[in-house]
Amino acid sequence: MAGNGPPPKANDRRVRRNKDTVPQTVLRWERAEPPELPDFRIERDGDLVEFEWPERTREWWRMWIDSPQAEHFGSSDWQFLLDTALIHARLWRGDASAAAELRLRVAAFGATPADRARLRMVFADADGADAGRGASGQPTARERYGALRMVSGGQGERASGE
């Protein structure tokens, strides 16, 4: 099965720090509102019939609309994702040949943790939401054990006060 390889190293861990030979093109950002899944007709047995989106594809589409990535989607991103929804619908109707293309397309949007790592996506509010504490909100290890100090003594020595 083909893939994209491991996520890239962080810049400060790279041995070679060659500059990009091709300059970047900076575009003006315009956020686009997500479209609804469209109503349309398809040809089936010589007749035009209304296309019905599988319920699973409707849930998948709503998941993308609600995803953190969606706030960074422009109009061309939504159009590409809309075409991807048709592939998703094919898969959920039993066309397993659509799986590879679907996997490649959703990877471009950061669908899995590995995809997000490869795209260098991180969730910004993760540490701010709990003030740097774990999900439980309990004190950190540094707060619990920060005052402890290691006492070293040679073998056979006794701690003072014994």
Rank of each mutant, 00 (worst) to 15 (best):
E157F: 09
E143T: 08
L148V: 12
G128A: 03
A10R: 13
L86P: 03
A100N: 08
D125T: 01
L81A: 00
D127R: 12
D115E: 03
K9A: 08
A99L: 13
R16E: 06
E157Q: 14
D83R: 01
T112V: 03
P23L: 06
P34A: 05
E162Y: 09
W78A: 03
P34D: 01
A96H: 03
W64Y: 04
R62W: 05
E30D: 14
A89F: 02
P54D: 02
A107F: 07
R149W: 07
Q155G: 14
D95A: 01
G94C: 02
D83S: 06
E55S: 06
L86G: 07
R58F: 02
L91N: 05
A32W: 00
G137F: 07
G146C: 02
E33H: 07
G154R: 13
G110Y: 07
V15S: 10
F51L: 00
R142D: 14
W29M: 00
P139C: 01
A32E: 00
V122Y: 15
D39Y: 05
R142F: 10
Y145S: 04
W61K: 12
M63C: 06
E101S: 15
R133G: 07
A159F: 15
R14C: 11
R149P: 05
R58L: 01
A114I: 11
P38N: 00
D66N: 11
L86R: 09
P23T: 05
R120T: 12
F80I: 12
E157W: 15
R44T: 00
